[in-house]
Amino acid sequence: MTNVTGLQAGESAEEQAFQAKIDREERIEPKDWMPEGYRKTLVRQISQHAHSEIVGMLPEGNWVTRAPSLKRKAVLLAKIQDEAGHGLYLYSAAETLDASRDEMTEALHDGRAKYSSIFNYPTLSWADIGAIGWLVDGAAIVNQVALCRCSYGPYARAMERICKEESFHQRQGYEIMMVLAQGTPEQKEMAQDALNRWWGPALMMFGPHDSNSVHSSRNMAWKIKRRSNDDLRQQFIDMTVPQAEYLDLSIPDPDLTWNEETGHYEVGPIDWDEFERVVKGGGPVGRERIRDRRRAWEEGAWVREAALAHAEKRRQRKMQAAAE
């Protein structure tokens, strides 16, 4: 059984020293000794996080050609490029734990690795791009700010970079929603429809309730996770409800109430059956996402091979020239 400090009966001296280091708020760096479970948990979490960034480009890519103006196209492209960058920072952090990049990619493509279920929902209208930036990136920021204090150095540093860039994503999304909400009745209707569809999935991004979260207590002791799912979700709800009010849009939850005593909003039940289905690769477009990733990987294979062959040829030439 795990107690509050994460120390377990029968732990080795190394494990105890490791936990003591974490309890002292010292960061763990790549070459330091670490329990295999710590390493595995991090590789799983960081690679899933990286995959989410990469798969997250797909629903947005869907709107690049149809974004309503040149400005919106340029902004969307920049945002998608950021998502790719975020994926790369994270893969780079996972590689410090001896995870191979190709293996991580394979695990995503053959369905062994998960990614955030939010990207298994389709982007049906332009307002969805606004809702994603506002709600999905907003939820991601809440999660990621907490992760900036993760005990593993390279992951925490990647999170800091990402958080700095993510704020642009959220603000551009809110601006899209604002323009629509203040536009024609049809445009406002579009914004409301997007909020209706993305609100529930955004709340699910924080994962199951604390009482049902499988990995939580050990990850908290290891400070891989610093705040609980429900705690982070509550922060997001409290932040977002007034933002929706400003837009004059309604949160699609008849049970939503303000609790004067606690100073928090309370939401109705979350549809966890849907969450389970979508996490397992279901969801309206789950299969499409992986198919698209695989196709991009396979169609890019010749470029990767040609670049390697070219580099090798140049290396040989250089060696020959040096020998002459």
Partner: peptide
């Protein structure tokens, strides 16, 4: 002292079996 792989590896040697077609790490 040890050879480094991305912020320094925790262990030396190849990380996995199989063909190495990955671009080198910088």
């Amino acid at each position: 002292m040890s050879q480094s792989r991305s912020e320094g590896p925790r262990s030396e040697g190849p990380r996995s079996e199989g063909p190495r077609t990955e671009w080198p790490l910088w």
